[in-house]
């Protein structure tokens, strides 16, 4: 079917023969290099279909003979990253916790690894700077309810606090008010005595009455001098740090309800190297004993 070529008079260019309202379309083909590139891309795409994942199927997709997947690539990169740390991780595994800080390089590695893990796992409760919130201890300071040596911190991390784990920090302060162990007047007196222990303004008479109640009910755990006992998880009542607040009302509330926060056990969730580096990191924040 040969058609006669029609040449447009004005431009001298061949027309395509298409005509709309008397206007004819000039035949201006794409540049040859462009077309060749276009065809080459089509041929290239066939190869792409074969080697790479390409076509969606009902429940799957064509995998391609190279078996490429982005997830596998990421997994390989993560593994490569961990493998690159193998020597340091092994060294950390073999070094006793207390000795980690004696090796500057190891301390730096463990602190960095611990910091990263802290941001992911611990920051939601303790804050990004480990500064804590009311009820969630500040890990930077030197006041440790359950002990501030690196080993004690590690133990707390492993088993948590009041988790039901048989090695967890489990001791719970009695709910003196809620369980009606003390009446409101006595709770008030003990609170006044507690304020006096911390050197805060208090009603001397009430505090005097509270001293007897304290000796009877509180001294066993918090100590006769009120300095607390780490093995009981009983906080120091004489210092400047108050986990649940140091006003009279907050102290009354603490005695009434017994407080007692809960921290998850991380032993079952994180690997031993990470737990170790977390302990080193928390210890290195400045308050570690």
């Amino acid at each position: 079917m040969t058609k006669k070529r029609e040449i447009d008079d004005v431009t001298g260019v061949e027309t395509t023969g298409h005509e709309w309202d008397g206007i004819k379309e000039l035949n201006k083909p794409l540049p040859r290099w462009w077309l060749l590139t276009f065809y080459a891309s089509i041929i290239w795409s066939v190869g792409y279909w074969i080697v790479y994942p390409a076509w969606p199927l009902a429940n799957d997709y064509t995998r391609g003979i190279w078996g490429y997947s982005q997830r596998a690539t990421v997994a390989a990169e993560v593994k490569a990253g961990i493998d690159a740390q193998a020597a340091m991780r092994q060294k950390l595994d073999q070094t006793p916790l207390a000795d980690v800080r004696k090796d500057p390089e190891l301390l730096r590695f463990a602190s960095a690894a611990g910091s990263a893990s802290f941001q992911t796992n611990c920051a939601p409760c303790h804050g990004r700077g480990a500064q804590g919130f009311t009820g969630y201890p500040n890990l930077n300071d030197d006041d440790w309810i359950w002990g501030g040596t690196v080993e004690e911190i590690h133990k707390t991390l492993l088993h948590g606090i009041r988790t039901g784990d048989d090695q967890a920090r489990a001791i719970q302060m009695p709910k003196f008010g809620v369980d009606k162990l003390l009446d409101d007047a006595k709770i008030n007196d003990v609170a006044e005595y507690t304020m006096s222990l911390a050197g805060k303004a208090s009603d001397a008479t009430a505090a005097g009455r509270g001293a007897a109640v304290y000796k009877e009910q509180c001294a066993l755990c918090h100590g006769d001098d009120g300095k607390g006992k780490i093995d009981q998880g009983a906080p120091n009542l004489t210092d400047a740090i108050w986990l649940y607040g140091g006003t009279k009302e907050q102290v009354v509330e603490s005695i009434r309800t017994g407080r007692g926060g809960m921290m998850p056990a991380w032993g079952p969730r994180l690997d031993s190297t990470t737990l170790k580096s977390l302990a080193v990191y928390v210890h290195s924040l400045g308050g570690g004993k």
């Binding site: 804050g127 500064q131 930077n140 300071d141 030197d142 400047a240 400045g286 308050g287």
Partner: peptide, 9 residues
């Protein structure tokens, strides 16, 4: 963060 840390003493 934290800008300062109050110690027990």
């Amino acid at each position: 963060n934290p800008p300062f840390v109050r110690l027990s003493d």
